[in-house]
């Protein structure tokens, strides 16, 4: 379980990183925390010819309040968010306990998780739930993509090969929001995850489709679960998954109502 050979590039600035990505094209992959990518490389399921390391780029990590909104630098770690006092964005801190385990949270990053786009990943759910804007820098500058438009399919996003996530902006506070999950074993990717924002009347579900599923003006948990199109899969039937959705939406709502 050793990765295939690659050329290592270290970017010092976002412009430098974008320059490298532009030059290297599809053969290049950005590495930040690497907590998903390196595991896939060790299995040789991912074998980029070039790795562009952005962990040494100055100024990409950090949590900043900007009026109503909260801005997370792409390199902000899960652990930094977990430990931060985020006031009416506390849902983000609380959700971090569902992200892997401590040694994963110390390295894994907000931007990396969103770029990786696992449909059950906490950051993907939170971004959609809170209508986050993903700021991506490319050769022609920075553009903003709404989270709902960002996730295109399993591990597929709206990001161009020469673009780099630099920041994720959460536009408004969510004092009554929560995320909860179910997995047989602690720290695993969720069988089903549910995130709710009571004030916005939004529910986002993970583990039920190739991308996070947003339900606006959501009804009862029963109605949300009933409306999903699910298929039986080995080891987990549609019926069971629907039941988990119902339970987790109820539980997330209960947690959210406590604020």
């Amino acid at each position: 379980m050793k990765p295939a050979a690659f050329t290592y590039h270290r970017a010092r600035t976002t412009a430098g990183a974008v320059g490298l990505l532009t030059e290297l094209g599809d053969d290049a992959k950005v590495i930040a925390g690497g907590q998903s990518l390196v595991a896939m490389m060790n299995f040789r399921l991912a074998r980029p010819e070039h790795l562009v390391d952005i962990t040494h780029v100055e100024g990409l990590a950090g949590i900043r309040r900007d009026g109503d909104s909260l801005r997370l630098g792409a390199l902000t770690t899960h652990r930094a968010v977990e430990k931060a006092d985020l006031g009416d964005f506390a849902v983000l801190s609380r959700a971090m306990r569902w992200v892997g385990h401590l040694p994963i949270r110390t390295r894994g990053t907000v931007g990396g998780s969103i770029a990786h786009a696992d449909a059950a990943a906490e950051w993907c759910l939170l971004a959609v739930l809170l209508d986050a804007r993903i700021r991506a820098e490319g050769p022609s500058g920075v553009r903003e993509i709404r989270a709902v438009d960002f996730f295109r399919g399993p591990f597929t996003t709206a990001l161009q090969p020469d673009e780099l996530i630099v920041e994720v902006v959460f536009p408004r506070p969510a004092p009554r929001a929560a995320l909860t999950e179910y997995a047989d074993r602690r720290g695993d990717f969720a069988l089903v995850a549910a995130a709710v924002d009571l004030d916005a009347d939004r529910v986002v579900l993970g583990g039920v489709a190739p991308t996070p599923v947003l339900v606006e003006r959501a009804g009862t948990a029963e109605e949300i679960a009933g409306a999903l199109e699910l298929r039986d899969e080995p080891g987990i039937s549609a019926h069971y998954r629907r039941g988990l959705v119902r339970t987790l939406v109820q539980r997330a709502r209960k947690e959210a109502s406590r604020g």
Binding site: R10, G34, V38, R79, L102, R107
Partner: peptide
């Protein structure tokens, strides 16, 4: 900070 040394390249 505790980290998995199998998920880091030394160069990083």
């Amino acid at each position: 900070a505790p980290a998995r040394a199998c998920l880091l390249f030394a160069a990083q």
